[in-house]
């Protein structure tokens, strides 16, 4: 199957600090892939490059064969680690905003998830807790019928009880031909849903494998991560 995301000698520098050191990577469509590494390893930088928020210093990154731009933004659903919601906006207004800008946004699916998570659509974002705002952002992303989902720390700020629902939401709501890239360091939580994983350390890709190949060797991704990234 053709790659949904390709990196060719991808380099990103912030001033004199090199965040990505010439990454070569091909991620296939139709998989749930963990982008794993310790803090500061370059996971968020890679995701921002894919979503068009940053420009590569050199090399290139392609989404479905295209450089990040208007066309790729139509097919990419991006969940940043930041809270981008406007305080004065209500949840319902935000749903309408998404419906206006994304042809693949499914309003019914979004409303259903809000009900399930007991979030009032009439609530203003300033009245919601940090965890609930993160849940709303995830709902906005997972209510799209996108080709590529880029989820940066989707479960970092929510309570453990909600994590299961969120992971369940991710599995249930993504289109089977789509790819989900999950960046996190909470590996044990997401391991059950992963097909593949990529380890990143200090801007270098050090491993890209299927979860099945790790399990075959009697290991888990979590134990492998602890072994590889031992301080």
């Amino acid at each position: 199957m053709a790659a949904i995301l390709e990196c060719r000698q991808l380099v990103k520098k912030y001033g004199s600090v090199q965040a990505l050191n010439g990454i070569d990577l091909e991620l296939p469509a139709g998989k749930i892939i963990g982008l794993l590494g310790p803090n500061g390893s370059g996971k968020t930088t890679l995701i921002k490059l894919a979503s068009g928020l940053l420009q590569p210093t050199s090399g290139e990154i392609l989404i479905d064969g295209m450089k990040p731009g208007v066309e790729t933004k139509r097919i990419v659903a991006y969940l940043p680690e930041r809270n981008y919601l406007e305080d004065r906006m209500t949840v319902e207004q935000m749903l309408k905003f998404m419906q206006d800008f994304y042809a693949d946004f499914n309003m019914d699916k979004a409303r259903e998830m809000l009900t399930h998570l007991d979030i009032d659509p009439k609530a203003k974002f300033k009245a919601l807790s940090k965890g609930n705002r993160e849940k709303v952002q995830l709902i906005l992303v997972m209510s799209r019928d996108a080709k590529l989902y880029l989820l940066d720390e989707p479960i970092g700020g929510v309570d453990p009880a909600s994590r299961d629902y969120i992971l369940d939401t991710i599995i249930k709501n993504y289109n089977k031909d789509a790819t989900v890239i999950l960046s996190t360091h909470l590996i044990a939580d997401i391991e059950p849903v992963l097909d593949e994983f990529v380890f990143i350390r200090k801007g270098d890709m050090i491993r890209h494998s299927t979860v099945a190949s790790v399990v075959e060797q009697g290991e888990t991704v979590d134990s492998l991560f602890r072994e590889v990234f031992r301080c």
Binding site: G52, L53, V70, K73, Y78, R82, N83, Y84, L85, Y102
Partner: peptide, 13 residues
């Protein structure tokens, strides 16, 4: 700022 994470990923120029 953080709101830019939404605005700059909208499918528009």
């Amino acid at each position: 700022t953080d709101e830019g994470y939404l605005m700059n990923t909208l499918p528009t120029r």
